[in-house]
Amino acid sequence: MSLVLEGFLNTVALTLLSFAGALLVGLLVAVLRVVPVPLLRGVGAVYVEVWRNIPLLAWLVLFVFGLPEVGVKMPLFWTAFTAIALYEAAFVAEALRSGVNSVASGQGEAARALGLSFRQSLRHVILPQASKRVVQPLANIAIALTMATALAGVVGVVDMTRAAQRINLELAQPLLVFTGVGLCYLVMAAGIGFGARVLERRLA
């Protein structure tokens, strides 16, 4: 029973922490991608293309087994957190960028005409309008991230899926065990979807 709880808590913690990390890094990358400085825009584009075009499982294996080879050894949970957060940040950045781009260009021009700086126009004119439009795309990413945490089980983290496999090894009842685990993921994902609807209504 304690194994089930450990797995569930690890999955929840990994989901919440990784998504928080992904939001932070993703916001930074999204800003890089829309600033009027070509070099910074290039840096943002390279980040997105490198991170999202390599499978998460490959990143996890590289981080867990590759980093110690160059002298960086973190606990497995934090290694998995770092890899998942940096990977999902690329998707978050693109969702945020498309949100910003969805604001009519006239809005930005009007802000500049009023004498607002780039930062001011982003903060007071663009982002308030963009934020409502990115809620659903971000919820999609959060749900995908929840499911992706199961990959951490492959590199030694005892998440919900790994715990289920360990239990099934003894019980030999895969249909029962994995239906139960599936329901847990369903509840988590439904919670994210519900939260997104509430948030969207608030921002409207």
């Binding site: 590289l62 087994f65 080879e69």
Partner: peptide, 10 residues
């Protein structure tokens, strides 16, 4: 680069 080399070696 070093990370990739390490991974490839592995």
């Amino acid at each position: 680069g070093r990370l990739f080399v390490a991974a490839v070696l592995l």
